Amino acid sequence: MKLHVITDGKKTNEELTNILRSIHPYVDRIHIREKEKTARELAQLLEQILKSGVPANKLIVNDRVDVAQAFSVRGVQLAFHSLDVQLVKRAFPRLEIGCSVHSIKEAAYAEKNGADFLLYGHIFTTSSKLGQQPRGIDNLKVMVENSFVPIIGIGGITPENSKEIGETGASGIAVMSGILDSINPVEMAKKYRESYSGYVEGGEK
């Protein structure tokens, strides 16, 4: 499986850069999800991250296709409110495109129109979605069975329950606070990787 880490917009550029520089050898994708930053601020952050030694081919920028293209990072993560995946794929064929989806219908549309992978959740109860019913393992399995592109599970995933994700045939997990808010992010990243060892190793469908 692939391990995706998603930033939370709560850390200073220096704090975030230091964490990402230390964990990048142990993760497969790093999503820069900084909703409150302007394009200029996001560019400054990316420049700092890249200068620290984090490889561009591990970086995914959320929503801001222009910034992703300008810095030649691996790809972009699109949400429902973002530019349409078909438009982005046509205009920026080099970029790997992930789409956040919440149903089979949304997944089918994104897949048909050029998405390279899908982020689906939230799978388990999580503090970032208080009061919202998790979609659960069974729905994740249905998503996997009905998709021809990699499905990445997100939401409330811990080292203890990540094996359940692997058992569905999903291609990976996405983690935010579980790693970034840990006292020791490097050790936690290693722990996540070790926890699903043996399940869909290598991940890509």
Score class of each variant (00 low, 15 high):
24 H>D: 09
26 Y>S: 11
31 H>I: 15
32 I>A: 01
32 I>G: 01
33 R>K: 15
34 E>H: 11
35 K>Q: 09
35 K>E: 14
36 E>G: 13
36 E>C: 06
36 E>Y: 12
37 K>N: 09
38 T>Y: 08
38 T>H: 09
40 R>F: 13
40 R>H: 07
40 R>S: 15
41 E>P: 05
41 E>N: 11
42 L>V: 12
43 A>M: 04
44 Q>R: 13
44 Q>P: 00
45 L>Q: 03
45 L>W: 08
46 L>A: 06
47 E>W: 03
47 E>D: 08
48 Q>P: 00
49 I>A: 04
49 I>L: 08
52 S>D: 07
53 G>C: 02
55 P>G: 01
55 P>T: 00
55 P>E: 00
56 A>P: 00
56 A>C: 04
57 N>E: 11
57 N>G: 00
57 N>A: 03
58 K>W: 02
58 K>T: 01
59 L>G: 02
61 V>C: 02
63 D>L: 04
64 R>Q: 04
65 V>S: 10
65 V>P: 03
66 D>R: 08
66 D>F: 07
67 V>R: 02
67 V>S: 07
69 Q>I: 06
69 Q>L: 10
71 F>N: 02
71 F>R: 02
72 S>K: 12
73 V>S: 06
73 V>W: 01
74 R>W: 07
77 Q>D: 10
77 Q>C: 13
78 L>I: 10
78 L>V: 05
79 A>H: 13
79 A>Q: 06
79 A>M: 04
80 F>Q: 14
81 H>S: 14
82 S>Y: 08
82 S>K: 10
84 D>P: 00
84 D>W: 11
85 V>N: 02
86 Q>L: 15
86 Q>G: 11
87 L>C: 08
87 L>W: 12
87 L>P: 00
88 V>R: 00
91 A>F: 12
92 F>D: 05
92 F>Y: 15
93 P>M: 09
95 L>W: 11
96 E>H: 13
96 E>W: 09
96 E>L: 12
97 I>V: 14
98 G>L: 15
98 G>A: 14
98 G>T: 12
